[in-house]
């Protein structure tokens, strides 16, 4: 693996009661990190990745996340 990739994604409840997208990211050293996206960014990410469901985000490179957040 030469760059971080999305390991898995799941829906998580935000503190204010909104659903958020939790993304676990596998880094080059094998360790897991994560980032949480709001619904708008998550939707954009799924479109960018042509993902029909959150499960289909697995394996996508981390730059895809950066691109939708910028």
């Amino acid at each position: 693996m030469t760059e971080p990739v999305i390991e898995h994604a799941e829906i998580a409840p935000g503190h204010d009661g909104q659903a958020e997208l939790f993304l676990a990211i596998r880094y080059e050293n094998g360790a897991l990190g994560n980032v949480t996206l709001n619904a708008k960014c998550a939707d954009k990410l799924m479109r960018d990745c042509n993902a029909e469901s959150v499960a289909a985000l697995a394996g996508q490179p981390w730059q895809k996340i950066l691109n939708v957040l910028k």
Binding site: E3, I25, Y27, G33, V35, C41, W62, L66, L69, K70
Partner: peptide
């Protein structure tokens, strides 16, 4: 550095 700090992009103002 950016890949380690995605949380700084996941909020306003991103990055």
């Amino acid at each position: 550095l950016k890949s380690w700090n995605l949380h700084l992009f996941a909020r306003q103002p991103p990055g």
